[in-house]
């Protein structure tokens, strides 16, 4: 959990699908996680290369396909194609071993993200 620096984001592939399906952002000491799916098409992952989820200033989450911007703390799209829609949040739990568990509610499975 200490691995991710403040203002940094990282994608994870907890279900071993061969591509990241969840990403975690550390912001103000907290970790937030979302499904790596842009609401614009509902089937596209956000980054242009692995872990590139944030703009250069670390202010917003961005989708690199058409530039949608999302608030880090709420996942709400504030500008761009999916304006007013939101990223799907992924609840995180801290396990006894200090691992962060992501609750992937669509299929009720819990994946270890790190």
């Amino acid at each position: 959990m200490e691995e991710l620096a403040e203002g940094e984001a990282r994608g994870f592939d907890p279900l071993d699908e061969g591509q990241d399906s969840v990403f975690v952002v550390r912001r103000g000491g907290d970790l937030v996680a979302y499904r790596d799916i842009c609401p614009h098409y509902g089937s596209t992952a956000l980054p242009w290369r692995k872990d590139a989820y944030l703009d250069a200033g670390g202010k917003d989450i961005i989708c690199s396909a058409h530039g949608a911007r999302f608030a880090i703390d709420t996942g709400l799209c504030t500008a761009g194609p999916c304006l007013g829609e939101s990223l799907i949040p992924v609840p995180l739990q801290l396990s006894d071993e200090g691992e962060v568990l992501a609750d992937l509610n669509s299929n009720n499975s819990v994946g270890v993200v790190k």
């Binding site: 980054p47 242009w48 290369r49 692995k50 590139a52 690199s64 396909a65 058409h66 530039g67």
Partner: peptide, 29 residues
Amino acid sequence: KGYQSFWGPGRHLFGSNWFWYFKSPLGCN
């Protein structure tokens, strides 16, 4: 090189052009 495909490869009908799209840091594909 680690860049992420958006759509493709494939071949369009109108125009017949082959295509492969990648997401980019320019805010578009």
